[in-house]
Design a protein around this nucleic acid. Sequence first.
DNA 1: GCAGGTTGCGCCTTCGACGTT
DNA 2: AAACGTCGAAGGCGCAACCTG
Lengths: 364, 364
Amino acid sequence: MDLNGPEQQVAPVAGGARRGGSGVPGGRRKQRVSMADVAKLAGVSSQTVSRVSNGHTGVIGSTREQVLAAMRELGYRPNSAARALRYGRFNTIGVILFSLSSTGSSRTVEAIATHAAAEGYAITLIPIDVATQDNVLGAFTRMGELAVDAVIVIMEIHLLDTATVQLPPGVHVVVVDSDAGDRYGVVDTDQADGARGAVRHLLELGHRTVWHVSGPGSSYAAQRRAQAWRTVLEAAGRPVPVPLDGDWSAESGYTAGLRLAEEPDCTAVFAANDQMALGLLRAFHERGRSVPADISVVGFDDTPDAAFFIPPLTTVHQDFAEVGRRCVEGVLRQIRTGDDSRPGTDLVPARLVVRDSTAPPRTT
Amino acid sequence: MDLNGPEQQVAPVAGGARRGGSGVPGGRRKQRVSMADVAKLAGVSSQTVSRVSNGHTGVIGSTREQVLAAMRELGYRPNSAARALRYGRFNTIGVILFSLSSTGSSRTVEAIATHAAAEGYAITLIPIDVATQDNVLGAFTRMGELAVDAVIVIMEIHLLDTATVQLPPGVHVVVVDSDAGDRYGVVDTDQADGARGAVRHLLELGHRTVWHVSGPGSSYAAQRRAQAWRTVLEAAGRPVPVPLDGDWSAESGYTAGLRLAEEPDCTAVFAANDQMALGLLRAFHERGRSVPADISVVGFDDTPDAAFFIPPLTTVHQDFAEVGRRCVEGVLRQIRTGDDSRPGTDLVPARLVVRDSTAPPRTT
DNA sequence: GCAGGTTGCGCCTTCGACGTT
DNA sequence: AAACGTCGAAGGCGCAACCTG
């Protein structure tokens, strides 16, 4: 709350009144303006400028107005480097991730950014090129240089394990898509529960068993979904088909679908995400296998598009916004209490959304 | 290049050798370590530490090793606030955007982040809640506070025009999805050219005219696509149907599709993005209108999924990675030359990708 | 001349402690 | 007591000095 002080004071100039240049002679001037400059123009001391800038008391209305006017005139913005130096913190959270293109990460990041902003924190993005392992090292190293108070890691924990990497001490950490609950705080969708719901739904419809198109083995989320799928089948005493390996892409789902279309007793498939489910739908359509009459399909994620697949996809809804929110909550708690000694896993529930891609098996 | 010096020097500790705590007694210690601390442990002066940290000459191998060892021991990371203060820059680029969920923005942001990282710059995300106009103001104001050397704005320029907003002087700017080429540098996909290609493709197939499902009027990209669509039809002397308003979502495409399915002489539709095209496909499928036999559909974006729609979608490919790259290039040029006096528009070509959703009209 | 230590200053802001009116 | 100004210090780093082996 204290944080909001400065922003309120230093309001930008209103209206299109003066568009091109500021009051500064020479038109476009891309130079830093210091408090001293503002003080000189306003005819006050820089101490007073500081008081105004931070919303402190002891400044009379008229003086305050003069100072604000001078700020606008010069386009003053407080030097956050100096501020950070003084305060010992940056009000910034770093986010390390592999790809923004994947369905979940971009939505999670968006939620993180939104909630962080609401708390007065900015987000710094550290992308990692998966191709070269070295870059992971580089990113973490760079991270050490970075002006961040905490870090949220969105990726497979595998790469945290490849021990060349150690997060710099002094930064608080929360991890998504990982089982590092013993070392770092973890926030994630309850993958296992979501997957169980999907498989049980298919069994309850009367299918003898359920096939699985998995995500890449490097992903913990994929592993847990596959594991839950297997567990449910075994618990129900059903045969466990060999899972088909996918890589999250629609193309890999399509490839898997072409193979599954040849399996005469395959009546139900659980795809580890919606994109692969899309690939399945197209493959089955091409091979003349009707969904859901011949084969039922369940996805995972509930992307906005899933409701408009042909047919509309039954899938497991992930609440990415909530995941992002809890991530921010987690790191902020660590920052504010200084307590990061109690890692743990915070699971966000997933829920099955039944649409038209699932039905009882054909009774022949 | 000079920038890479420190990163190389301050390598993180290798291996899982010492996992839990650093050499510091007391285990987890979340305290800043200064150069002086390192100097004391290494038994050298902080000046020497500085020389090592910056890769300067004048430090003999053995001493250098001692210093590096001390850095690792303490988990030292240079204070970037102090560095920024000293150098007068942050090596950070701010990105202002509305939503990461939209197809293009997340991919553009990813490319921006990647290229910026390669140049030694970090990315700070400033999300804006579209709902309340005030937040736009707030975001820009906050921006002023932010530790950034330049800003990339990804949004409809409309909101830049609503004059309450003025970007703070002293920061360089590049804008995406806008026509503010006279005021700021602009980078964007060549929307008009892409749209023209789509419409011409349909006309060349023999369709009498082409219907259009547009994006929201608040988007300049949507406006330009619609305009190009209209221009091509008029130039060819074809009737111009009333465009159907969409909002980028698959649902709006679906709604539009239900209406178009009732138009007996509608044989070709150009949707302003792939998601709406997906909605169209489902609506036509439900209404028993075969694509492409009865109706041809073209989208825009070429999302990874478009190739797996039913049928695979003919669409206009956007090179988001290139857009992101040029954005970074643009701001870096401004930062480095200090010249931001020559705004202009940098258009990235789009190209039509023909798949199976388009065909000549039925010859009855 | 080279490997180093030592000193001091500046970057900009915040804050506390005193001043004065 | 309220509304200011002045002064000094701190925060971490980099650099330019100058000085010592």
